[in-house]
């Protein structure tokens, strides 16, 4: 069963890895088997959230952000399935901090009771660019916007949970800096390449641009929280080599992989295994 850690204990584990020059690797787990083998592979933290469940059920991860389920209820169901196979690493709950039907303080107590050590704002409304982004201020006003996501993270921080926040814009990075969270994850858009992903551009140029963006996000958040730790996700960063570039050119301390850790690695082997069984002829 997953163990619960205090915020300070999580920070200490991170510090130990950094001293040994290891990146912090976080993986998303939509099934028990993803979590089990991520832990054996030496992952530092495991994230459980709605999108992971959709992804591992063969749907698009984006479903987790849409009107198909209650993300906050889903975590509890997922926790019952996944927590028993996790032995030692701290577990993150990906929450919808802007859900108006949930009392966050009670909800966080339940998450702590379930064994979660950390929370992050995923699903988020932060990347509904277009209509929902143009009404982002209105969403805040209505009590269902990014502002509420940041407030929920601040509350979680107060309650002793470790906190991670995704930001898609500089303004969001500032808001997360003010919320006092532990790790800022700079989201650089959807991961390029792979099946169904957006086309990759000139990789060296893209990575350099990504590094500059991460620097700007860092600056925005550090104005309010000089101790904030940094990670980058998506955009041109998709392979371990890409992360090496980002570590060399930014203050990013690690990588959060979801599809790249639990979905893409199993797709082809399952397909191949079935083909090999199917290719045997019955004489």
């Amino acid at each position: 069963m997953a163990r619960r850690y205090t915020r300070e204990q999580v920070l200490k584990r991170i510090e130990e890895q950094r001293k040994q020059h290891h990146p912090i690797v976080i993986s998303g787990a939509g099934t028990g088997i993803s979590a089990k083998f991520a832990e054996r592979g030496g992952v530092d933290m495991i994230g459980i959230y709605n999108s992971g469940r959709f992804r591992m059920d063969g749907h698009n991860s984006g479903c987790g952000q849409m009107y198909f389920s209650s993300a906050n209820e889903e975590i509890l169901a997922l926790a019952k399935r996944i927590m028993p196979v996790i032995k030692e690493v701290p577990v993150i709950a990906g929450i919808a901090g802007n859900d108006p039907s949930v009392d966050m303080e009670t909800y966080f107590r339940i998450l702590q009771f379930y064994g979660f050590s950390a929370v992050m704002n995923f699903p988020t409304c932060g990347d509904f660019l277009g209509f929902l982004q143009t009404t982002m201020e209105e969403m805040d006003e209505y009590g269902i916007g990014f502002k509420q996501e940041a407030e929920s993270l601040a509350l979680a921080h107060e309650m002793g949970l470790f906190t991670l926040g995704y930001a898609f814009t500089l303004e969001q990075a500032e808001m997360l800096g003010q919320a006092g969270i532990d790790i800022l994850i700079c989201h650089l858009g959807l991961t390029q390449g792979g099946v169904g992903g957006p086309a990759a551009g000139d990789r060296s140029v893209d990575l350099a641009e990504a590094a500059r963006t991460v620097g700007k996000f860092e600056e925005a958040a550090r104005k309010y929280n000089p101790d904030i730790l940094l990670m980058a996700h998506g955009g041109p960063i998709s392979t371990p080599e890409d992360t090496r570039y980002i570590y060399a050119h930014t203050n990013s301390i690690g990588f959060l992989g979801a599809s790249s850790i639990e979905r893409i690695p199993v797709e082809q082997p399952i397909l191949e295994a079935v083909r090999q069984f199917k290719d045997i002829m019955i004489e």
Binding site: N50, G64, Q65, M66, Y67, F68, S69, S70, A71, N72, A96, N98, D99, P100, S101, P123, C125, F128, L132, T135, E138, M139, Y142, G143, I144
Partner: peptide, 22 residues
């Protein structure tokens, strides 16, 4: 679903968020 949510006192835009199955 949007109408059902708004008559519960929630903002109509709540319908776009992952808070319920429409």
């Amino acid at each position: 679903s949007t109408a059902i949510l708004r008559m519960k006192g929630l903002n109509s835009l709540t319908c776009a968020l992952p808070v319920a199955n429409a």
